[in-house]
Design a protein around this nucleic acid. Structure first.
Lengths: 211, 211
DNA sequence: GCCTGTTTAAAACAAAAGTATTACTCCATG
DNA sequence: CATGGAGTAATACTTTTGTTTTAAACAGGC
């Protein structure tokens, strides 16, 4: 296969996720990927196009997976449990690790940065390309949890995304602080163990879903 | 007064908060502030020093306020309510608007970006300069809520910060989406109304504080 | 075995970045 | 009135940025 493209994507996603889009230069990317500087523009056209392809490598797999899970949920009669709802996203997200090692975390970090990026290139691309998928997700979700309005679902999902993205993006900082203050060595799993109950609590708060 | 410094600080905080540190150039700052390019380096020394002074303008007022509130809480006997705990932070945060209009929101956005910034200049500065204050806050907080361990408090606070910072930083994006999908015009207050219950739910989840 | 399209390599390019220099303007102080 | 420090303005400097260009290497098909 054309391994240069893959090498660039892997290097870029790491640097974008850990340092940010603007903070990473093409030379950092090509150095890390061990490829020539010009190869990025040759294969992707521009830096902006690269950032989009980096995140779309994950989105193009994630979206169908989530939709499949939702359709499966639609066939069931009873009201879904909170854990059933979470696994709608959890399983597809974890599958992203098959694309690249650590892909799940990279993707979530990148997605968060995409929201915060003020120019909104990424967000514009996502909402345009996956317009129908996003709409389907919202509606099917609402259908399965009718006690939550579409707007409530929207907000709860984004709050959960915010907590996740921030925590993952700041995981280095948090690890440092915990080490200095509590003298505890922290790993990603520990952070997630703390975070999931927090997210769940806020998510189900108004909905009265069965836990 | 030396209004050039203030003009630079105001322009820089707006651009840093909305676009990010790396994404804003000195020329953007000085243009917005209507001052000469060289004045930033004259008054602050460097761009990095400016970023620190921008956030420290708020921190230097915020920290004593929070500590005063905590000391007041320590004098009371009964276990504090969740709203009492929130107002420990809420009132000092809102007071930041007296420094500059919209200061509360700017500060929270900047703080979030400081955590995510991988180089960690800002974080290093904060944890070093406000070392004793941060320690006092953690301990006094724990003392008032003994049913929550210091580590639990640490995590819940940072999850709350993450949700807040992300939501505020992404508020433009969220406003756009809501407008496109729900045809609703959104203002900051609406977002906060949605967010506060979410944060509270996660925060008190394990602690069983009286609501 | 030559040719054609594709990919890589090395270097050059123009624009933008942060910073430094220099001269000029005030204005309070002696 | 002269002077010296503080602030401002205009410009120059150096490095880094993303992108282009040109040539070389490498495929596979006839």
């Amino acid at each position: 296969m054309n391994s240069t493209k893959i090498k660039i994507l892997n290097a870029a996603e790491y640097l974008f996720a850990t340092h940010g889009y603007a903070e990473t230069s093409m030379r950092q990317i090509t150095n890390r990927a061990n490829v020539n500087l010009a190869s990025v523009n040759y294969h992707f056209g521009s830096k902006k196009a690269l950032t989009i392809e980096v995140i779309d490598r994950y989105l193009s797999q994630l979206m169908p997976d989530i939709i499949a899970n939702l359709k499966q949920l639609q066939n069931k009669k009873e009201e879904p449990s909170i854990s059933a709802i979470f696994s709608i996203f959890k399983q597809p997200l974890l599958t992203l690790n098959s694309i690249n090692d650590g892909g799940t975390v990279y993707f979530l970090k990148l997605l968060g940065r995409g929201y915060i990026d003020s120019q909104g290139h990424l967000r514009g691309f996502i909402t345009h390309k996956y317009q129908t998928e996003l709409r389907f997700i919202r509606q099917a979700f609402h259908q399965s949890c009718p006690q939550l309005s579409e707007e409530e679902l929207f907000w709860h999902l984004h709050f959960a995304l915010g907590t996740t993205s921030f925590t993952l993006s700041a995981s280095d900082a948090l690890t440092d602080i915990v080490k200095a203050d509590f003298n505890t060595e922290l790993y990603l799993d520990d952070i997630l163990d703390r975070m999931v109950p927090y997210i769940s609590a806020g998510f189900i708060r108004q909905g009265n879903l069965n836990v």
